[in-house]
């Protein structure tokens, strides 16, 4: 089944998942979220893909939030179902066995910001504008942002971002730790591709183990985390020693 709102490409073991609505703003509508889930599932199954990049189609926004016209008349239970759908996408990204890089190529707002935060690593273009403007339209986010933003940038910076609802620049985002790398517009795609290809060249099982153990570090205490690290290293060593016997 073809995708209406996504373009899929593969290059150097990297799967590119590009949001492209054919308009300036890529909205996270119900259809787009469902397509993202389906495409992500396909790429996770695809043995030729070792790393996934989510981005906006070049020249457009990364992603803005939901379709406000669509949400205006939501009942509380519609809203609950919509939050559930979005959260299930972000859970899928986090549980995906392959690294997922968010390449923030332009305007990143609301649900788009939450999508970026579900990615393992965020690379931004220097013209980035990133915002969480829910309070401007009378809502909070329902896409895990209230939990993730404070963990990424600290509680106080997160409160400021939510409360002002204003856009922040690439350098502000870098200073706060909201994005990990920033590149000028002309170098952006080559740098994203180079970085993603570098990660994709590493052994798949090691990447998936690394992702699992690093994600766990956020939620569990140090001792349990260390026990998990030891157990996963044991499994990993076992896999690698049988698949690539060392001399």
């Amino acid at each position: 089944m073809p995708f209406k709102h996504l373009h899929l490409e593969t290059e150097n073991q990297v799967g590119y998942l590009l949001l492209g609505a054919g308009t300036r703003f890529n909205k996270l509508s119900v259809t787009t979220i469902r397509e993202l889930k389906r495409a992500l599932g396909q790429m996770e199954q695809d043995g030729t893909i070792n790393t996934i990049v989510i981005s906006g189609y070049p020249g457009e926004s990364f992603a803005v939030g939901a379709d406000i016209g669509q949400m205006l008349h939501f009942s509380p239970t519609d809203a609950l179902r919509f939050a559930q759908l979005g959260q299930s996408l972000f859970d899928q990204i986090e549980s995906c066995s392959k690294p997922v890089i968010g390449a923030l190529n332009g305007i990143t707002m609301g649900g788009g910001c939450d999508l970026a935060m579900a990615c393992d690593i965020r690379i931004a273009v220097d013209t980035l504008q990133i915002a969480h403007p829910g309070a401007r339209i009378g809502i909070i986010t329902g896409f895990c942002g209230t939990r993730k933003l404070p963990r990424i940038v600290g509680k106080n910076a997160a409160r400021e971002i939510f409360m002002t609802s204003e856009p922040y620049t690439a350098s502000e985002a870098l200073r706060m730790g909201l994005v990990d790398r920033v590149h000028p517009e002309k170098d952006f795609w080559p740098m994203v591709k180079q970085f993603a290809a570098r990660i994709a060249a590493h052994p798949a099982e090691t990447l998936s183990t690394a992702k699992k153990v690093l994600n766990a570090s956020e939620d569990i205490d140090l001792k349990s985390g260390c026990a998990l690290e030891a157990a996963l290293n044991g499994t990993l060593w076992n896999t690698r020693s049988t698949s690539n016997p060392t001399p």
């Binding site: 809203a79 609950l80 939050a83 959260q87 909070i140 986010t141 329902g142 209230t146």
Partner: peptide, 8 residues
């Protein structure tokens, strides 16, 4: 968060 979002 989901429930608070719905309440709004």
């Amino acid at each position: 968060e989901r429930d608070a979002f719905a309440l709004i």
